[in-house]
Design a protein around this nucleic acid. Structure first.
Lengths: 152, 152
DNA sequence: CCCTTTTAATTAGACAAAACAACAGTTTAG
DNA sequence: CTAAACTGTTGTTTTGTCTAATTAAAAGGG
């Protein structure tokens, strides 16, 4: 009887929690965050920074607030992010040509290689998680539903 | 004049980001968090606190670390949470009968009513989000997939 | 029964992420 | 030209998470 203490000692009733999309979303995202950190900790990249890199790589010359708007976070938060990425020589700020207030963001040459290596890691980890679902149809279905739930 | 260029000025290519479960999960969860805050801001309850309340209500007499373990967060984080909920007279600490180190958590009478009102709000908001999906089958499917992705 | 090891709750600390207001320089609109 | 709006920035605050250390108490072995 004193055999099972902590391992099987979880007859906890989650009640309404297991039927709430918000809660299940939170748990899943927590898991993804920790796994992402494990995969990319040595590269010093967080999920948020990775998103910035992808946007800049796909949309060269974008301004800081444009990136912030695309990613749905405050423009003040972009300062530290771009500072760090510029310090890592991944992206660079160039003065915008027709607006002296803003910078245009571009990938450096080193950033291109870095992006390739980073993407490779992220895709491997993404595949590992996606393989938990039955097939690609389920993955695209899930992505579609998540997008619907992301809208304001 | 409400939307001049910001709305139309978003031909941003999200590239690989839109195919990543982790990113879509993050965006969806961000949306749920802000909506939850809007709904429950006046009640002073965050998603994390709500989860604690549900667990305690469904499992009276549970210890703090048991709740923490169930919700997947650290024991030390429970102190402030229980302090706040006890200060709001929602739950209360009672000395555990066979272990003088730990407390057993219970709902107060006021907490019961509070829980009902809170659950009503959360369920309304949950229904509003769930109604974006086709039917209940899609909701349960989504919940199932999210649970799979939450496992370690 | 003593002694060592665990465990529960707590505190304090560092830490990152996010929200928000304010501000200077700049652009734009009336 | 003047007022309003915008960009990047700084500072502040909040929030959440993690770590280590502390105190009290339980558990187990000899």
């Amino acid at each position: 009887m004193a055999d099972d203490k902590k391992t099987t000692d979880t007859p906890v009733d989650f009640g309404i929690l297991d039927t709430l999309i918000g809660y299940r979303l939170r748990r899943a995202q927590m898991n993804f965050f920790t796994k992402f950190s494990e995969v990319c900790s040595d590269l010093g990249i967080s999920p948020g920074l990775f998103a910035v890199i992808v946007i800049v790589e796909k949309n060269p010359g974008l301004t800081q607030t444009a990136v912030a708007q695309a990613l749905g976070n405050d423009r003040s938060a972009m300062v530290a992010a771009v500072d760090k990425l510029e310090g890592m020589d991944i992206i660079e700020r160039r003065p915008a040509k027709n607006d002296r207030r803003s910078y245009a963001l571009f990938m450096t040459q080193y950033g291109q290689d870095y992006f390739k290596k980073l993407t490779k890691r992220v895709m491997e980890y993404e595949q590992a998680m996606a393989s938990r679902l039955k097939d690609d149809d389920e993955v695209t279905w899930l992505l579609e539903k998540l997008q619907i739930l992301s809208k304001d």
